[in-house]
Write a protein that binds this DNA or RNA. Sequence first.
DNA 1: CTGCGATTTGAGCGACCGCTCAATCGGTTC
DNA 2: GAACCGATTGAGCGGTCGCTCAAATCGCAG
Lengths: 205, 205
Amino acid sequence: MSDTRQRLIDGAIETIRRHGIAGASTRTIAATANVNQALVFYHFGSVHELLKAACLAATEARLAGYTEHLTDVTDLRELLALGRRLHAEERALGNVTVLGQMLAGAQTDPHLAEATAAALALWVGPVEETITRLMADSPLAGYVDTAGLARAVCAGFIGLELFEGVDPAGADAALDALDRLARLVEVIDGLGPVARRALRARLRG
Amino acid sequence: MSDTRQRLIDGAIETIRRHGIAGASTRTIAATANVNQALVFYHFGSVHELLKAACLAATEARLAGYTEHLTDVTDLRELLALGRRLHAEERALGNVTVLGQMLAGAQTDPHLAEATAAALALWVGPVEETITRLMADSPLAGYVDTAGLARAVCAGFIGLELFEGVDPAGADAALDALDRLARLVEVIDGLGPVARRALRARLRG
DNA sequence: CTGCGATTTGAGCGACCGCTCAATCGGTTC
DNA sequence: GAACCGATTGAGCGGTCGCTCAAATCGCAG
């Protein structure tokens, strides 16, 4: 891996964090990376390819210290707290969430859509595994599709990250509310055998 | 209200839907509206002001047939189904969700952030009222902050709308999972007095 | 040192951006 | 008809965009 390539990717990530996808031009990226602007095209061919590589790298870096912690999670509230901590770190570090910018751009840019789908899969996969594991001995197992639930959780976090940029207090209140709901599920999981049977019957009926 | 003003706003909304916020230039907007480009600045002063007006108008139009239906909603699943229907209509109509684009842009553009906050408030308010009403006689009343819950719901929908542009099947699975969860809450709300007391005690403990 | 391929550089092309401006138009008033 | 005024027009300014290109520079094999 060329040194210049890596510096361009790092510069692109930082530029997206500071100015959003729309503000990530080849000139600002190159300036941030302390590299000649024409090298973007020598190494990546187009600004799209650089952005794709940068977005994937940003997602991988973001998830690097996250996926391994997922295996330690023992209940839903911990999963939520882990996401919340990561979310706060991301916010403190770089202001703008890269995945949110990618998703918004992906709505109209096929190049970005491809990279975004790949980045999302990197995130959704481990979350789904964790949720499946957590729900294994819950009365809700088999009742809620874990794949759908994982996507709902991830989508919710992305929405909240975007929310945070406009109404930080509201986003915090939303996270508190979700924490309460997670506790509710925890309580349900702690039900005795009689109550479990009753609940499952009600859910089926 | 000048006819030209309204046509520019409509053109701006359509342009954002088709090309995203980043692709909504004064020239494309004016062309879509069949209006001279310079009139953007005569009527709105700047492209920012036009986008602000357009985003607010889009949100109002979106909520027009929605808020009134909220008063008919009698349980959480209906609220979800209503959001889902609106979401599908939006997608069928214009490809790109305007609020999602606004939120993404608002992360780095203060002008847009102001308008986005206003638009969000238009949406969150009625949802919060509805949720508060629905939860009034639930065992969960007072346990979950309705303001936070409303924001979580709205943020989740925005995340899902963005998700839909990249992975439609995944977004659908997520909505199905949320529907199941809503049904769970419904079951909880239908608990008898003994079970309610037991649940509340567990939630407190 | 010479030659050569890989890398880097600065300049610049055409296209589009937000925005300005003098000129023009159309309706109202005297 | 003349004077007036809000609305509209087309041209164009300065600036940034993605991208190209010939020339310069570098590390290395012969």
